[in-house]
């Protein structure tokens, strides 16, 4: 009986294993693809402030045409990353950090900032950070920092642009 079932068990075992392995690998693979796509126009560890989203220019799936996006693909191999930004008055804005598994490691919106600039340091567990710095520890060395700024109307982009451009990513080296 077992001998007859053995081929079926082998197929089922391999299928179950590859099914879960595929589900587990998909977020990492899709994030790497997105990072690679961004790397063509957005240098690592620097913010690139994208123009308003258009159908002809979509950097990631399901973009919102009501938001202005700034992207900082990061790599912590050379050291922790300092992220600074200021809230854009009178509208929703946020800074979020997505790790290599696509999980959100950090979000801070304009209400959290309460009108004040923000500064956080993104670091791996074994990295030393400046004393007193607000630190976000992440498990993976790569990911994406994203700034979102709401546009109630596309014509607001020019007014908002100089403020969002104050956001910065930079590697902290010793």
């Amino acid at each position: 009986m077992i001998r007859r079932l053995a081929p079926l068990l082998v197929v089922a075992g391999a299928a179950v294993s590859s099914y879960y392995a595929s589900l587990a690998a998909a977020p990492y693979a899709l994030m790497r693809l997105a990072e690679a796509k961004m790397a063509r126009t957005a240098p690592t560890n620097h913010f690139t402030h994208s123009p308003p989203v258009k159908a002809e220019r979509q950097f990631v799936v399901r973009p919102s045409p009501d938001l202005l996006y700034s992207l900082c693909p990061y790599d912590l191999s050379a050291g922790p990353l300092e992220i600074t930004a200021v809230p854009v008055p009178g509208r929703y804005s946020s800074i979020s950090v997505f790790d290599a598994r696509t999980d959100v490691a950090f979000v801070r919106n304009d209400e959290d900032m309460a009108g004040r600039p923000m500064r956080v340091v993104l670091a791996l567990d074994n990295q030393t950070v400046p004393a007193g710095a607000e630190t976000i520890r992440v498990r993976y060395p790569t990911g994406i920092v994203l700034q979102r700024v709401l546009l109630a109307d596309p014509s607001e982009a020019a007014k908002v642009d100089p403020i969002r451009r104050q956001a910065q990513c930079r590697t902290l080296t010793r």
Partner: peptide
């Protein structure tokens, strides 16, 4: 996580 990565990457919590 896999579906969001494909259909809504960089979605917020």
């Amino acid at each position: 996580r896999a579906v969001v990565a494909l259909r809504g990457l960089l979605a917020l919590p």
